[in-house]
Amino acid sequence: MSAPAERSVSVNGVPCRIWEKGQGSPVFYLAGIAGLPRWTPFLDRLAERHRVVVPSIPGFPGAAGHDRLDQPLDWVAAVLDLLEGAGLAGGDLIGASVGGTLAAEAAAMAPGLVRRLMLIAPFGLYDKASPPADPWAQKPGTLPALLSARPETYAAFVAPPEGSDVGEWSIAATRAGEAAARLLWPLGDTRLERRLHRIRCPTLILWGAEDKVLRPSYAERFAAGIAGKSTLRLIPDAGHLADLDAPGAAAEAVFEALD
């Protein structure tokens, strides 16, 4: 994997990292619950055919400023600033997990901004019969198996690179957890469901068949609420972070939706 190019855009006066790689029609990606401590094989697959643009959401690796976002509206405005600043203007947008929530909010609140939307297991809805699992109340060592069907892949994804400052790496990882919690704690209904009808663009909904955080039944509720033509795809042998667990299958599904 070659390294992505890096620039930044300012959101509320705080710089947010933008990674970019590949050629072709642009596709934007908002990352999941841990953010992107490093580039991933899924993004590399996309970069084989597209210019992949990856803005970091405030508080996630590469971007600070989550501590000034108090209300959902603050978050939506920040993400719109981020996406517009990164150059999304009527382009294609993928959002995974936490990033999926904000991608869906952005598409609902600024319908002209997104041409085609791809959501990978976003948070935001609440099913009383199957509430989200709580990633912030896990016994030490159990989080990887909750988030991923391949815990060792997840562990490697978040592990500090050799020679890095382990203490600061761990603080950045905690900060990502905090940012996600700041937006979603305590994982109740964010009212996104009431805004789904404003998503009028074609939408692909991807879900890991083995998602233990948000059961795949949530996928159908997203599909039912979205006004645009929605396609639902379950990815076998993948957990909540489906694009990390099954980069090939996830990328193929995206290519089908885009090409």
Partner: peptide, 11 residues
């Protein structure tokens, strides 16, 4: 829970 301890406290 993430965020309960400030980053200064973590450091």
């Amino acid at each position: 829970p993430p965020g309960y301890n400030s980053e200064a406290t973590q450091r």
